[in-house]
Amino acid sequence: MVVSSSNPHGRELAIRKRIASIFNKREEDFPSLREYNDYLEEVEDMTFNLIEGIDVPAIEAKIAQYQEENAEQIMINRARKAEELAAAMAASKGHPAQTDNDVAPSQSSQAGVSGQGQYAPTVPGGQPRPTGMAPQPVPLGVGFDMHGYAADDEEMMKVRAERGRRAGGWSVEFSRKRAFEEAFSSIWIC
């Protein structure tokens, strides 16, 4: 699948995002750091070649073969990433992340829910999720926008925007003072 876009940076980002969602192994998945670095180098070479349009059919075939052979591992890693995101979201909102060990046995067997905002990677009975063309894992109990951040109500968005401006040193008074200084510095008196 070749992504075409008038924006070359957007095209590169789309390709990198797609490749990262497929080739999502971590360092702990490899017996040595050397093997992990070789894996990262191979993934980056494929990404670069896709971006530059070099030998695209061969790379797409290699990606399809990798997806077929590693479908279960890809889904497990996506689920793990979703769980980490949910835990980080819970921590950022001041809620301690609840794990499967913290849930009562009667609760953990109900629909695989492991806590508010967390993705449940198993079905009742502890069996792994089915693999194949299943949809990507989605955290439960938390709404996310298209960038993966928690969707907030309008009031919270205003509060965050104001905090961001203050954290960046922006203020109405500062802007007004700068505008006056720039305006008056351009006046020449002869």
Rank of each mutant, 00 (worst) to 15 (best):
I59N: 06
A14Q: 09
E155H: 14
R129K: 06
E41Q: 10
Y39P: 01
N70F: 07
I63S: 02
R160D: 14
Q67L: 12
G126L: 03
M89F: 01
I22E: 13
A20H: 09
F180V: 09
M133A: 15
R166D: 09
V103W: 02
T47W: 04
E35T: 07
M146H: 12
L40A: 10
Y36T: 02
L50S: 08
S32E: 08
S4R: 09
V113E: 05
E42N: 12
G132F: 08
A20I: 00
P57A: 04
A97S: 04
V56T: 13
S5P: 01
M156F: 14
D38C: 04
I187G: 05
S21H: 12
Y36V: 03
S106C: 09
S114W: 11
D100Y: 09
S185P: 01
I19Y: 03
F144Q: 06
E27N: 07
P135E: 13
P96C: 04
P105T: 09
G112S: 07
A61W: 10
V159E: 14
K93E: 09
R163S: 14
P31E: 15
V138S: 14
Q107T: 05
A104C: 08
G132H: 06
P124S: 10
Y66G: 06
R163T: 10
N70I: 03
A150S: 03
Q98H: 05
L13Q: 10
V43P: 02
G125E: 10
E162Y: 13
